[in-house]
Simulated assay, not measured.
Amino acid sequence: MTILPIVVTGEPVLHHVAQPVTAFDDDLRTLVADMFETMYEAPGVGLAAPQVGVDARLFVYGWTDDHGTEHTGVAANPELWVTPLPIGELDDDEDAEGCLSVPGLRFPTRRSTRAILKAQDENGEHYEAHAEGWLARIFQHEYDHLDGVLYVDRLEDPHAYAARKIIRKQKWGRPGLSWTPGIDDIDA
């Protein structure tokens, strides 16, 4: 397995709709294994193929909830249904998200509290997962990557303004930038 470089906002593959997965073969299973290793090293709770420069509708996730239940999976060619977005003030802690392609930043992001994910695993087998809370947030965040949307694109002001300012200061927002977990030290 290999730890892959993670591309940073501005890389074109992050900003367009990803292509469907068509081959469920050893190459895909190797990519999935590498994505899991990269995600855990980063550390993160999800990683989409576009984040490692691969134009494919594929993401992996791995998170352990407060009860010790591990939620781990592969989602190829996913479909996602969500409940309506909640209204009201966002909580700076409860609603905070980060992204490995906008490293070091965390901002409150409005997400639905429930989601249903229909997808295929790395062998092409279809499955359905129902999620609430943090897992529903993970599904929405990673699914967005497959449609070319980063969480900073969903921020509300004043957080949207702050994120744009930091991205400019870091000189992100242009092609060719990446970092490798375990090798590069990323600070925002």
Rank of each mutant, 00 (worst) to 15 (best):
G124Y: 01
G62A: 14
D92G: 00
V45G: 01
T113K: 15
A56Q: 11
A42W: 10
H67S: 15
A49S: 07
D55E: 11
A42P: 04
D95Y: 03
A56S: 11
D95C: 03
A115T: 06
E97L: 03
E79Y: 02
A49G: 05
H71L: 11
G62D: 15
P103A: 07
P43M: 02
E132G: 13
P84L: 07
A115P: 01
L100Q: 04
A131R: 09
P103Q: 08
A136F: 11
T64H: 00
D91N: 15
A75N: 03
P43V: 01
A48D: 07
A48F: 02
T64A: 01
R114E: 13
H71C: 11
N77S: 06
H71Y: 14
K118W: 02
Q120Y: 13
T72P: 00
E132P: 03
E94D: 15
W134D: 06
G62F: 14
E94F: 14
G46S: 04
H141V: 05
T64D: 00
G133Y: 11
A75G: 09
G62H: 14
R137C: 07
Y127S: 03
V82D: 02
I138W: 12
G73I: 04
D93I: 15
G68P: 12
E41W: 00
Y61K: 03
L105D: 03
S101A: 02
R110C: 03
Y127C: 08
A119I: 09
W63H: 14
E128H: 03
T72E: 07
V52Q: 06
N123P: 02
P103H: 12
T113V: 06
G53N: 05
G44P: 09
E41S: 14
G133M: 01
A56V: 00
P103Y: 10
D93L: 15
P86E: 11
L58M: 09
Q140I: 11
Q140Y: 08
R111P: 02
P43L: 07
C99W: 04
G62C: 14
L135C: 04
S101F: 08
G104E: 10
F107T: 02
G68M: 08
D65L: 10
V102L: 01
A49W: 05
D91T: 09
P50I: 00
V52R: 01
G104V: 07
T72V: 15
D92R: 08
A129D: 04
E41V: 13
V74D: 05
D92S: 13
H141E: 12
E94H: 13
M39I: 13
V102K: 01
D93Q: 13
Q51A: 10
D65H: 12
N123Y: 15
G88I: 12
D91L: 08
A75F: 13
R114P: 05
A96S: 14
F139W: 00
L90I: 11
L117Q: 06
P78T: 02
H71R: 06
A136P: 01
T109G: 03
L85E: 12
M39A: 08
H126P: 00
A56K: 14
R110Y: 07
S112V: 09
V52S: 05
L58R: 08
H67D: 15
G88Q: 05
L80C: 11
S112W: 05
A96R: 11
G73Q: 05
T109V: 13
L47P: 00
E132I: 12
H71Q: 08
E125W: 02
W81G: 00
H141R: 10
A96Y: 08
Q51D: 09
A115M: 01
